[in-house]
Design a protein around this nucleic acid. Structure first.
Lengths: 104, 104
DNA sequence: AAATTGGGAAACCGATAGGTTGCGCTTATA
DNA sequence: TATAAGCGCAACCTATCGGTTTCCCAATTT
């Protein structure tokens, strides 16, 4: 029941949470205010995000601030790499084509 | 019941299929041979990938070749952009720090 | 024309997702 | 010390996921 990052970012609410705390660390209550759900639902999302180490906690009194581990996002970037080569390749070809057209 | 690309790439089998046909267009049967599932299961995955226009079909007699629409992958890349700024920013700060240390 | 092959659609199934409500624990405030 | 605030956990519910099996249709072979 390994949880991976791709599953974590599959949910739109989770992506929104990620974008939110990318700016600054936030508490579950503060996060929940941005959505039309209960704090508990947000808490569940945070747990999933924590499980794949996309976010970390910092306790401050009775509050818990969650913050994004932005480096983990590189894993998605790494996966994209293989396709980037392909679409980059197309640009190269386009460049060549344009260059060819220039010569004429 | 809008299907989006992030949900499409959430499933590991689907990511494997994407990687497979990125190399060359393939038929459902050919794809299924690479996995431990039935052709019908693969067919379902292909339908989901089609729904969010990640792949396109090309009929050839009674065979159907599925090929990757690699450009669609840019949507993920686009989403990553906001975080790339952050992790790029960290490097910049590190550079500044190193520069500062050099001066002393 | 009959049999085979490639493929999608539908019905069904167990597992999981994402939400809610209710509860209990800890820390802060009155 | 009593009350309130912040949070996580567990139980529960419905919808969806990912898979299988069965069936049917179109295009090839024989």
């Amino acid at each position: 029941m390994r949880r991976d990052i791709f599953q974590a970012i599959a949910d739109p609410t989770r992506r929104a949470i990620i974008a939110l705390i990318a700016i600054q660390a936030m508490t579950p209550n503060a996060i929940a205010e941005h959505f039309d759900t209960t704090r508990q639902a947000v808490s569940k999302h945070l747990r999933i995000l924590s499980e794949c180490e996309l976010i970390t906690q910092e306790h401050k009194g009775r509050e818990i601030y969650y913050q994004l581990e932005v480096d983990r996002m590189r894993e998605v970037d790494k996966w994209l790499e293989q396709f980037r080569k392909i679409w980059q390749g197309r640009f190269d070809n386009l460049d060549k084509l344009l260059a060819k057209m220039q010569k004429k």
